[in-house]
């Protein structure tokens, strides 16, 4: 489904990703782990189409299509979803209105009829239960005044509504207490259906205790220095990142 090959990315001329190779098949869950400043978030942003990154070599295909040639909204229409590490607060934009616009933009792309307000509300009320969010959230401005936990759950809620084919979770576990982490993980797990793929970017192993990955990749210094099964995450937790850095050296 997703194929990243020899991807090199710079920010303001500075190399951040130095040749990434990654294959994510349909229904697979891949964890990208790594120390701070290893390039994890850069990879997530480049896949979603954020500006400010210069791809100097390699490429990314999504179902064989050149992903990097597409605008962020086109990637979303193809089924790529990024759960933000820092969801943006947008004062004055009603959450329900925003999500309805997003959902209908995707439906329009797929040639489906747009949902009217009532159909939309019936759908989102179901999805809210998935992450145990209150309906009052719909009336609030996007992420404005949300607690850290609410923001992350709102990301998973949006994912549930938009039903992407590939979800990239960028440190969705950061800043969450254990209860909030379990809620987020439960929401993600309920979206695992054997078809939908996930790239879970995280610094810590603890999310992976709840969202169990098929593959774990360790990113360090802009390269994937080690790949393995879920036990690799446990090893990292036990030994720290210095261990892989040394191993890679």
């Amino acid at each position: 489904m997703l194929a990243v090959h020899d991807l090199e990315v710079r920010i303001a001329g500075k190399p951040i990703l130095k040749g990434i190779d990654l294959e994510v098949g349909s229904g697979e869950v891949h964890a990208i782990m790594g120390p701070n400043a290893s390039g994890k978030s850069t990879l997530a942003h480049v896949l979603a189409g954020r500006e400010g990154y210069e791809v100097t070599a390699g490429g990314v295909t999504f179902d064989g299509e050149d992903l990097l040639a597409l605008s962020p909204e086109e990637r979303a229409h193809r089924g790529v979803f990024l759960a933000f590490q820092y969801p943006v607060a947008i004062p004055g934009v009603n959450n329900a209105y925003f999500l309805k616009a997003a959902l209908n933009a995707g439906r329009k792309y797929r040639g489906l009829a747009e949902l009217d307000a009532i159909e939309f509300l019936n759908l989102v009320k179901e999805k809210l239960k998935l992450v145990h969010l209150d309906e009052a959230l719909l009336k609030r401005a996007v992420n404005e005044g949300f607690s850290g936990g609410e923001k992350k759950r709102n990301e998973v809620f949006q994912m549930a509504v938009l039903e992407p084919r590939l979800a990239i979770l960028d440190e969705t576990d950061s800043g969450l207490d254990i209860d909030a982490l379990k809620l987020v993980a439960e929401g993600v797990n309920r979206l695992r259906d054997g078809q939908r793929s996930f790239v879970v970017v995280t610094h810590y192993q603890r999310l992976l205790s709840y969202v169990v990955p098929d593959r774990v990749h360790v990113l360090s210094g802009g390269r994937i220095v080690r790949s393995g099964g879920r036990e690799l995450a446990l090893d990292l937790d036990a030994h720290g990142y210095d261990w892989v850095k040394v191993a890679a050296a």
Binding site: R50, P72, E73, I90, V93, Y109
Partner: peptide
């Protein structure tokens, strides 16, 4: 705000619509 624009677009909202939504929020 370019971050807000990217956030909206990353959800599938077309760029001109995203700009209109943010402008309208300012007016509203």
């Amino acid at each position: 705000d370019p971050d807000a624009l990217f956030y909206l677009c990353s959800r599938g909202i077309e760029a001109p619509v995203a700009r209109a939504i943010l402008t309208q929020a300012f007016i509203d």
